[in-house]
Write a protein that binds this DNA or RNA. Structure first.
Lengths: 211, 211
DNA sequence: ACTTGTCTCCCCAATATTGGGGATTTATCG
DNA sequence: CGATAAATCCCCAATATTGGGGAGACAAGT
């Protein structure tokens, strides 16, 4: 039996969902609430496996409530549901540790699928949400491989040190080479990256994922 | 009709999937191949809506094939399938523009669901893959908000300039303030961030998402 | 044998940065 | 009205960085 706690401020949806979930094999609805202010307390009381949380609610947002729950009971799975597919909300929810993010749908079995998925340790994302997440992912990690620069192993090593905020002297010690050598390498790095200061090199290194 | 092109080196699975997909309403299997070397050519020939691509194949990996396809036909949806849920592979596939990533499953309707999802512009991720993606996302974006530092608006502005690799003089010009003022602000920033050089400040700014 | 690339180190001089003081103005808050 | 925070500017001196040279050692490839 998967124990479920539901937070949803819309009375009609809350009651419909309650009815559906309560009558689905394998699920046990511990409670359904219109307000998540007491979420932490309710989680402690009912020890649910999965919390189904509307993102937009009065008093306290679903994300805040989830954050609070996760802080106390990190093992509780939280499934965020919303009508919006706002980028910021999705982003915030994921960062706050959401185990799933589904758009409200008239197809009730979607809720059940999502609940089962997160209960089993996976995550469940509605297709349009998943598309957003992948897009965000790409925009973060796929860099413009525009001007590929080939740094020698030593240069990469030195650059990595620079990214750590180390000075010439510290780099020399860390790499077991002389101060002058560090100087030489950095001169070469600057030329290859077309920069002429440490901060620039660091930024470029990070955005080119050379480190 | 959703036109599909299948790449799968395992003969048995390829034939099973072909049979299933070809006999599913709304799907039209344009072809099934054991090798993706000719993938770009085949895509041009059949103009599929969705390419179902095994990640591990001889000669050329599914990711490479997808990259090639996406370069020529970015609008073609590519659904990656694999037996592995290796982090690196998932990561590489997403960065290369995968529209979906599913684990091989005996439940054939999963393939159909995934195909429909990506065809409709969404993304489809198997629960365990979705969990990995969310975890990667969190590890990237959830910072240790440990030592929250409050920079004044001007300080933030100056810090942003530093991240762009600007020198004191350039920052002074950009912000329409004097050189000495930049100096003062940077001194304060260093103190607040507990650093004592520009590169360190830049790195800290980036990882604390202060910019 | 010769070139090429990498790593190593040095000299010198011009700039830039850092850290320590201090000062003034403005605005906001109680 | 006094206190406080923010923003603006200045001086000075110690360090650090940057950019220009050059040079030897060593390995790999032509």
């Amino acid at each position: 039996m998967i124990r479920i706690l539901l937070f949803e401020d819309n009375k009609h949806l809350r009651e419909s969902l309650s009815l559906y979930l309560a009558n689905t094999d394998g699920l046990w609805l511990s409670g359904a609430y219109a307000d998540a202010t007491e979420a932490v307390k309710l989680v402690r009381k009912y020890q649910p496996d999965v919390v189904l949380m509307d993102i937009q609610m009065p008093h306290i947002s679903g994300i805040e409530a989830m954050r609070a729950i996760k802080k106390v009971n990190p093992e509780v799975k939280v499934l965020i549901q919303t009508v919006f597919e706002n980028d910021d909300k999705v982003f915030a929810a994921i960062c706050a540790g959401a185990n799933g993010y589904i758009l409200k749908t008239p197809r009730a079995e979607e809720y059940v699928n999502a609940i089962r998925d997160v209960y089993n340790g996976g995550s469940h994302l509605s297709p349009s949400i998943a598309a957003k997440v992948l897009a965000m992912f790409q925009s973060q990690f796929v860099m413009k491989e525009q001007t590929y620069v080939s740094l020698t192993p030593r240069e990469k090593e030195v650059l990595q040190c620079m990214v750590k905020g180390m000075s010439y002297k510290m780099i020399a010690d860390a790499c077991h080479i002389g101060f002058s050598t560090v100087h030489s390498h950095i001169k070469n790095i600057y030329e290859k990256l077309h920069v002429n200061s440490a901060p620039e090199a660091v930024v470029k290194a990070l955005e080119m994922r050379l480190v």
